[in-house]
Design a protein around this nucleic acid. Structure first.
Lengths: 351, 351
DNA sequence: AACGCTTATTAAATCGTTTCAATTCTGCTC
DNA sequence: GAGCAGAATTGAAACGATTTAATAAGCGTT
């Protein structure tokens, strides 16, 4: 009898089990590819007995679905991507954890990546996400990416902004009132009798930091004696805090601040390290307050007062909003704004 | 004149620019889809003038390649995946950073995810990676996933094990000599005159921790007076360290250890917190040594002596090995074993 | 045994890109 | 201007899954 010639290198199983596909599974189970697909994606459509036979064939062959093909046909991808400003910062790690937990309950894989606060990297990552036709993206914008985000949205990818409220109501967002945070910090310092505050913080093009500074300035202006200076740092890590502190300590003693407000806790830790090394007493000589309330600020040489942001909750809420956007495309955009809280520790109060 | 009927909703640009594809670009640029593809993937095959025309069409339409289709046809994916034990642990974050930097130079996107030391999550992540036919995977195994990794390898996905040398020479790996690390830690404590050491550490099924314990035990056995007890914790975070410490402090004072060896720095920080809170002097009453030398251990209440692992280097080396495996499939497996070093700080020496 | 009616299964079309082989075009030599 | 090499371009066939609409099978009723 004549056989149709099969164009694959047919010895199949023997040759190289690298490429088992639905049709192999189907053949082994004695059904059609369509049935295999149904068994996988709509189990209720296929009888229990064939389902089992198919499962056995799958196990036997070690079949793993080719996601590219699936996606191409399905036209969509369940996964969502998240671009972090900096994985090395425990604050963002915690936000990511919150998002991940939430997404896991929605059975959506999360792809993490980080921009390192580099607009170019961010753009590259967005490009990847775009090419992958992800269901959604969680992003803390660093560069000028609004047009990219718009394009993503037009393409049907949901977008939620994390840790920053965009002016326009284009995207749902999760954020924290950074101006309030800045005010809280300064308020606390003034209450403790400090008058000359130095704020140390990463590049001003980071919205969050700019707002914290603005809040701080507002509060300072309400007092007629207090002063605020801003020491801009190129990055937001421990090293930045150390360098800035060296600068501050190099000044004549008379112009030294009596309090330092660090734009985040990593910077605060750096500041603390150099103050300790220079023999400056915290808080007696200089009080120190950080931002983010990462867990390490509580166990620092001198436990650091900090402005708490509900990191994990922010992540999970962002993920929740994202799922909303994905699942109900018509729904209005939503903004969740969290309130920062001050967590007072020794670095501003003394032992 | 008669037109062939196009099956797409043709108003195209007007209707919804969501779906510009090669054929739209081709039409606008007055060439065939094949040429567009060539312009994108093999620019040298297409003349400068058409290349430019195509580029203009792409910009005009906002065309973004559909990666699923590309992959399906190409059969491969440049991206590599990495499964971290815990993003919240700065050590792993730093390893990831190293890998990411290295991979960026090879123009390979990195997909991060974390298993949270949960075998089930790990398996799920591996499943995703498998379905995506990634070029390679960097993984620190937690569950029993050797068979999955083998399958990945058979399928053509490169695998490199991070932070653990598998017995068999199946996969290239990057690791640190954890037994030596354990010995170094105990050695240092004994040298400082400590005799009764308590090791506090996460689940023993984590290879790294088991090895650190073994190394510690070996060293203790070389002394006839020293003792070592092991306090197993279910996790490897700050909270675990705190809980274990409460247990230790609950014991009668006479049986208290005079030194604690924490299996990592997060645990060490937790231990330190509870010791401080209980008024136990570090290192006078109890010396403390951690592991990983994360940057926060240097700025703790009492700076913590720690065993340094070259995190970033490990990540970049792992990525390098992975690229080797991907690019030269025939090459032999390679193992890079880093040596840990002790970084001495106050927590074992006094001020 | 013919009839509806539900349930299981399948053949064939499709997703959007890349690639191969074939074709057209270009410029150049003799 | 015929002949030709090489470059530029293209039509049509993949890639591997899913889906739709159609077919087959089962099953109780009359």
């Amino acid at each position: 009898m004549a056989h149709k010639v099969v164009n694959r290198s047919t010895p199949g199983i023997l040759k190289c089990m690298a490429l088992a596909q639905v049709r192999d599974v189907a053949k082994l189970a004695g059904v059609s590819p369509a049935t295999v697909s149904n068994a996988l994606n709509h189990p209720e459509r296929v009888s229990a007995s064939t389902r089992q036979r198919i499962q056995e064939a799958i196990d036997e062959l070690g079949y793993v679905r080719n996601d590219a093909a699936r996606q191409l046909r399905a036209g969509s991808n369940r996964a969502v991507g998240m671009i972090l400003l900096d994985v090395g910062n425990p604050f963002f790690a915690e936000v990511a954890r919150g998002a991940e937990n939430q997404l896991t309950t929605s059975h959506r894989p999360l792809l993490l990546s980080n921009s390192n606060q580099d607009a170019e990297r961010e753009a590259a990552q967005l490009g990847l996400f775009e090419e992958q036709r992800l269901a959604g993206v969680l992003v803390t914008p660093v560069g000028n990416v609004l047009h990219r985000l718009r394009r993503l949205k037009e393409r049907g990818t949901a977008v939620v902004i994390v840790d920053r409220k965009t002016g326009a109501d284009e995207f749902s967002s999760v954020s924290v009132d950074d101006k309030l945070g800045g005010r809280l910090a300064v308020d606390h310092l003034l209450e403790r009798g400090r008058q000359h505050i130095a704020m140390v913080g990463g590049p001003q093009n980071l919205r969050q930091i700019k707002h914290r500074l603005q809040g701080a300035q507002q509060r300072v202006q309400q007092s007629d004696s207090a002063t605020l200076t801003f020491h801009e740092t190129p990055t937001t890590d421990v090293a930045a805090g150390r360098l800035a502190t060296l600068d501050i300590l190099a000044k004549p003693r008379s112009t030294r601040p009596d309090a330092i407000f660090a734009a985040n806790d990593l910077i605060a830790l750096g500041v603390l390290q150099e103050l300790v090394r220079a023999g400056v007493s915290v808080p007696d000589d200089i009080a120190l307050i950080g931002y983010d309330n990462i867990q390490f600020s509580a166990s620092a040489t001198t436990p650091i007062t900090s402005i708490r942001q509900p990191a994990e909750e922010m992540g999970s809420r962002a993920a929740e909003l994202l799922c909303d956007v994905i699942d109900k495309p018509g729904a209005p955009v939503q903004h969740t704004v969290f309130q920062p809280e001050i967590v007072v520790r020794e670095s501003t109060t003394g032992a």
